[in-house]
Amino acid sequence: MFYKNCFYDYLLNYALTLVKIIFVESCNKLDLPISINISILLVDAIDKKRVEFALKMFNKHRGVDWVLSSTKEADVIIVSIDDPDSDNQLEGLSDKTTITYGKPQVNYPWHVSPEGGALEIMSVFSDIYTFLKNKRSSLPKKTANSFDELLSFFGRIRLHNRVLVKFSEDIVFIANNMDYTVEFLKPKNLSINEYISILKSVDFEASTYSLNDIPDDCVSTKFDAFIFYWHLAHEIEIDDAGEKENQRVYKLKTWPALTLVNHQEHDLKISALMSKGIFDIYTISGKARCQIEDVYKYILSCISVDFVDATGNSISHRKRSLNGNNKRSSLLTQVLQKLNFLKQE
């Protein structure tokens, strides 16, 4: 124990000195701090402490975050190459940046050895930091997949009787709010699922155009608007809403035609709940016992066909809804259980 403590003290002083000399200057060259999740899979407690200590030093002097996280969430993992289980530990983690700790390995670009000490560890961290920062800045940014923006997009479509919508250059459709249809113009002979997968791949960056832009000689395919928007909303990954949207309350005007689409029990619960009152997203999620994202998807697909109205924030509605009666009749519960059972059969 005594030797261990001595080792830590020695390591602390050694590292502090090095950090002061080397990193204060060099790290100033790096800009825009980012957060990097890291998981340390080292069995040896002292090795693990050394790495954690080096991370803390790096964070302190760089003002950035190397955050200890689970292996699943990690951007970077550190494994001991001397550990016989290291190969198993790396299974299914090929997308992560791996630092090997131990003997130098050809297959792994990032490596630290126990002999190298804190200087080497932090030097590797610095290189990885720069590498990941550059990699992230080159990734395309999602532009319109937040709930606020999608809601605004679907709301804009609803405002016009006929509106031409373009997704990239290939996907063009006319949203017709007079007869609740979506009519696609080119490309030819694609199914609804193929359309949707293309829409998904272009990250839902849509623009609306005037109807004068309709291409000549187009081939069109017509879908019921609700069916199309339901599928579309369920295909898109929706980020969280802003605070403003979370405070908004929603009113159901017409039940969505759930018998026509694949649906979960919570879609029916949300519909039943909303047919009895006006609620915000969080209240719907809580009362219908479902995920916020499920509520987002439901609201988006309904709002696009005017089945749901987004109204202004109403604190009184929220208070009333939160004080709702949560009694459940045991007989009704039995009926629901039986119906769910039959549906799954």
Binding site: L268, S271, A272, K276, N325, R328, L332, L336, L339, K343
Partner: peptide, 11 residues
């Protein structure tokens, strides 16, 4: 299910 949930929601 829609009917049952609508009744339940009123309780």
């Amino acid at each position: 299910q829609a009917l049952t949930l609508s009744i339940e929601e009123k309780l």
